[in-house]
């Protein structure tokens, strides 16, 4: 169980080292695993269950309960559209439609080249700039459908190489 290494070259062991080996660490461990792999691979979940001495079913129940976790591989760049109340009434629905038109994916989906995953979130706490779009780490405020292409492209070239 110490043979698996994570995407950033960090062994699974290192993640487990950082937390006490008890049930209370489960969410924090899964968060670290998610950060390293960009999703929660099934075999790693089994390892986590063993390491923390928690039933596998319990690990899956936690992994599927929280929105922050994905059991499917995700695109290189995560696009988050805020659908919180402030963003909803300022037109976040139109932003999603425009992204779908441009990339051919709906919320929760990933482009076939694994470039982008589109997600919706319930408020990112930047409500004063609604509607808010986050591409990778870049936060865009006051987004109109016409500004979507530019926001996506900024990420595009950096991703290409």
């Amino acid at each position: 169980m110490n043979s698996i290494s994570c995407a950033d070259g960090q062994p699974m062991e290192a993640i487990l080292e950082r937390h006490p080996r008890e049930e209370a660490s489960l969410i924090q461990v899964l968060q670290d695993v998610h950060r390293a792999y960009n999703y929660l691979p099934c075999d790693v979940l089994v390892q986590v269950a063993e390491a923390l001495d928690v039933p596998v079913a319990k690990v899956f129940s936690v992994a599927t309960f929280y929105k922050a976790f994905s059991l499917d591989p995700q695109g290189k760049t995560i696009i988050k559209v805020c659908t919180g109340t402030a963003c909803h009434i300022r037109g976040s629905g139109q932003v999603i439609e425009e992204i779908t038109r441009q990339l051919g994916i709906g919320p929760g989906q990933t482009t076939s080249d694994m470039g982008f995953t589109l997600k919706t979130v319930n408020c990112v706490g930047a409500c004063a700039m609604a509607p808010v779009l986050i591409v990778g780490d870049q936060v865009h405020g006051g987004v109109k459908p016409a500004k979507v292409a530019k926001a996506l492209n900024q990420e595009g070239p950096r991703d290409a190489h």
């Binding site: 049930e23 489960l26 969410i27 929280y66 929105k67 922050a68």
Partner: peptide, 25 residues
């Protein structure tokens, strides 16, 4: 510090405590 997992119900007091304990909220 305990980071949430993106579930609204975890703001509710008993759910929040379950979540800190590493359980579903």
């Amino acid at each position: 510090l305990s980071r949430g997992g993106g579930a609204f119900v975890c703001g509710e007091s008993s759910a929040l405590m379950r979540s800190i304990e590493g359980k579903t909220g």
